[in-house]
C-alpha cells in the first residue's frame, strides 16, 4: 500500500474510496463529502505526503454514463517532483449548483485551470480569487462541455452582423 494512503486513512477514515487502472492511482470523494473533505485532503497530500505540484485540474460530466452516481467530477492530479509519483483525486459534485472548494490557496497553478472548469461545466469554486469565464465570451450563458449541450451549439456562432462590400 502506498505511503500516502496510511496518512490519508488516519486523517480521513472512511471519507474516500480508492481505485486504480493501469498505472493511475485514484482517490475518490463523493458529492456528499467532497465540499468538506477535498481541501483538507489536498492540503494533507501537499504538506505531509510530498505531492508538491498540482499538474492537472479537469472536469468531467457523467450524465448518462454507465453506472454513474454523481454528475460532475473534477479531477485533481498531483505529482511528487522528487520521486515522480502521481495521484489523482476525483471530487464529485451534483446539480443544481455544483460547488467545490478551490485549490488556489494551496497551488497558484490551479487558478486558470479551475476557471476553465467553471467556464466549461459551471462548477463554482469557493474562495477562488477571480472566478469568471476564461475561454468563452462573457455574455455567453451556456456551459459548452456539459453533455446536454450540443456539439454545434444553439446557433450562437452565426449571430453576428454581416458587412457588405459597399458599406465597408
Amino acid at each position: 500500500m502506498p505511503a500516502y494512503l496510511d496518512v490519508l486513512n488516519a486523517k480521513f477514515p472512511n471519507a474516500f474510496t480508492t481505485s486504480a487502472f493501469r498505472d493511475n492511482q485514484r482517490v475518490q470523494l463523493d458529492a456528499e463529502t467532497a465540499p468538506r473533505v477535498l481541501f483538507p485532503l489536498l492540503r494533507t497530500l501537499k504538506e505531509q505526503c510530498g505531492f508538491d505540484m498540482l499538474f492537472e485540474v479537469g472536469g468531467i460530466d457523467y450524465l448518462h454514463y454507465p453506472d454513474a452516481v454523481d454528475r460532475y467530477c473534477v479531477v485533481y492530479g498531483v505529482l511528487n517532483t522528487t520521486t515522480g509519483e502521481r495521484l489523482f483525486v476525483k471530487a464529485f459534485a451534483n446539480d443544481p449548483d455544483p460547488v467545490l472548494p478551490s485549490a488556489v490557496p494551496l497551488w497558484e497553478g490551479a487558478n486558470w485551470m479551475e476557471r476553465e472548469v467553471f467556464d466549461m461545466y459551471g462548477i463554482a469554486f469557493t474562495d477562488h480569487p477571480d472566478l469568471r469565464r476564461i475561454l468563452m465570451p462573457e455574455e455567453y450563458t451556456s456551459f459548452p462541455l456539459r453533455k446536454d449541450y450540443p456539439l454545434r451549439g444553439h446557433g450562437e456562432r452565426h449571430n453576428f452582423q454581416h458587412l457588405t462590400r459597399a458599406e465597408s
Binding site: F55, E56, G58, G59, I60, D61, Y65, P66, V75, G77, G109, W112, M113, E116
Partner: peptide, 21 residues
C-alpha cells in the same frame, strides 16, 4: 485524460495543455 464508456469514442478527452498553464 481519457474517460471511456465502452464504445470506440472517448466520453471525455481532456487535454493537459502546457501552453495554457
Amino acid at each position: 485524460y481519457i474517460v471511456a464508456d465502452g464504445s470506440g469514442k472517448a466520453w471525455r478527452a481532456r487535454t493537459r495543455p502546457p501552453s495554457f498553464i
